[in-house]
Design a binder for these strands. Structure first.
Lengths: 197, 197, 197, 197
DNA sequence: TATGAATGAGTTTTCATTCAT
DNA sequence: CATGAATGAAAACTCATTCAT
């Protein structure tokens, strides 16, 4: 929480307006005044809920990714094997971004144009997601479903890098193809690798 | 070639100065005047070699990535099997960015803060690299070294996403660890996947 | 109205400051920042009232010439004959520019240094004034006070050309002579021509 | 003579190129480099013939107006009465600008966008032309063809103002109408004035 | 809480002119 | 005489943030 306040209907309205404006006009054309107008509030009101524009963007990412991660965590809890857990994670990753194309544009393209400082804070939010990936990998190692000598950090980079690259391609191709349908083949690819068994 | 000129010692000096200034000060603090001073030329001279600042950045990426890709291609030609080619590609990827940390900062962090238009042009340059990855995968499929039912696009996204994510982590961790040493384990991971054989 | 706003005390203050700065420093030395300082506002405030610098200059001309024309029209309405109307027009033309030397400098010298596009818009404003001249000429023809075969367009060019040339000479001679005193002789000249009756 | 040099084939080529480039692209888009290219010389060569860009423009005006005035003077010498001399002057004024539309654009529109200093020097060149008008008026007064009480300065302003305004209108209307055909009616208008005789 | 008018710092690019060759 | 690569000063405009109401 950047400010003690948070919550209130306007807090949410502003964040949703920001997602919409950034998705529609791009990060560099998403002026505070434009977001305020889209949210139906005065420019100054935004500063009652957020310390500054950067805080708004971080809060946006925190809120959206928080929900994203929670739903993924819940879904994973329902799975039995690490293998199924990974499939579930991939499916949830693709499903949630498929269902909110505006958010996908914002997270995959627009928010990456921000400065290093902001991206560092975004990275912090991602850590919880990466920890989730790690826990699946750990379980997989312990249960010998995954290679026992697996370097968790490398495996996590492979999984996240693959998913992220795939979603970015999907967004840049104007979400023409069915992203969720890729979950199973990608899961299989990550599990078996390139080699011919 | 955006301008008929190009080449000449100043062309290279300006590009190298741009890499250095962007790496040192960040994309948003890399003013033309700062780059000019670093290159030892007048501000206006930059506009004799580049149409505008964006053209300079694109040219920078084209030149550096062009060289990056060429060296990788040459190295791959020396390899016999698709498996070795992939290892070679990973090693060259890591080696070249390891050896030019400034360039790594610029390509992994700073140049991603640019607008969509510029990133699109950067994407064009990358296509040649991705085509190289595809050719290795294709050879692997044909020789049955790689899974014959491999979806090349997905496999390419896995490979590039993994390498890119790994290098970005290396840069963001202030290149504390030995990037090149990761080539072999990552290669193994990509070949075998997560599963316990 | 280029912007919905307009009006308000600052709108007028900025325009008056622009006239003063342009008259004093010349068109090419009338930077926005100089005008803002003279108006006692911040640079950015100018852009709340005017779309850009060109819009400010056009608005300036529209406002000043609008008032100029209105006053002339009202004075002409008080006259009975076309002959007296013409005298009245000449007197108002000279009187109003005599009383605002800064404005005279701006309209006769400085605003003519602008590009064709801006001058075209200035020309539009002048059309109302030229229409006023035309109406006097038309009345004069109909009442046989003026030559019934008069080519109105040529006559208007003679009148406007003569007045404009005279005022420009007055401005360029540092308004050393009494401009208003020339109204009657010029009126007589325009009515009778050069010939010896 | 601004420089001792002058003359030489390149001197004329540069001036003619300047007229063409200014007419075609407008004063503000008539860069020295563009004029040099049009003249088929190097940028620096212009500075061998002209002190600076302003000197080039003044020389352009001097050369073209010098020729303009000389031809007018010669034509007037052939006339007997002041009345015919005035008609001759008007005809030559319109004829010469009609025959060189590029020059008309340059003198009527583009060269007026220059700063006060340059326009003052242009005014000096015009003085010889105005003196020619004055001499006709003087002859007319002395021979009682023109009103003996004529204020020569005012009459000159009327004549020049009318001609100038007419030519400017012709240029701004894309020289759609026959300018020379206006010489006689304008002559009649200037001689007889507006009144119904 | 909410408003929105006002602020003012900060940067790319052009182009007349020079001068070493 | 001729070249043309190099110079470097100069200005309009945007937009995150504030604060009086």
């Amino acid at each position: 929480m950047t400010k003690g306040k948070k919550r209130g209907p306007k807090y949410d309205k502003i964040i949703d307006a920001a997602v919409k404006v950034i998705a529609e006009h791009g990060y560099h054309q998403a002026q505070v005044s434009k977001i305020a107008k889209a949210a139906g509030v005065a420019d100054g009101t935004i500063y009652l809920y957020f310390k500054n524009k950067e805080d708004l963007l971080i809060s946006l990412f925190q809120k959206k990714m928080g929900s994203f991660i929670e739903k993924t965590e819940m879904e994973i809890l329902l799975q039995k094997s690490p293998d199924e857990m990974l499939l579930s994670l991939i499916q949830m990753h693709f499903k949630q971004l498929s269902e909110d194309y505006d958010l996908a544009i914002v997270t995959q393209l627009e928010l990456r144009q921000t400065n290093k400082q902001l991206r560092a804070k975004i990275g912090d939010v991602l850590k919880r997601y990466l920890a989730l990936v790690d826990s699946i990998l750990q379980k997989g190692k312990e249960s010998s479903v995954f290679d026992e000598s697996l370097d968790i950090r490398l495996a996590r980079q492979m999984i996240f890098g693959t998913l992220d690259e795939t979603v970015t391609n999907w967004v840049m191709n104007d979400h023409k193809f069915d992203l969720v349908a890729l979950a199973k083949p990608i899961h299989r690819l990550l599990i078996n690798g390139l080699s011919n068994k």
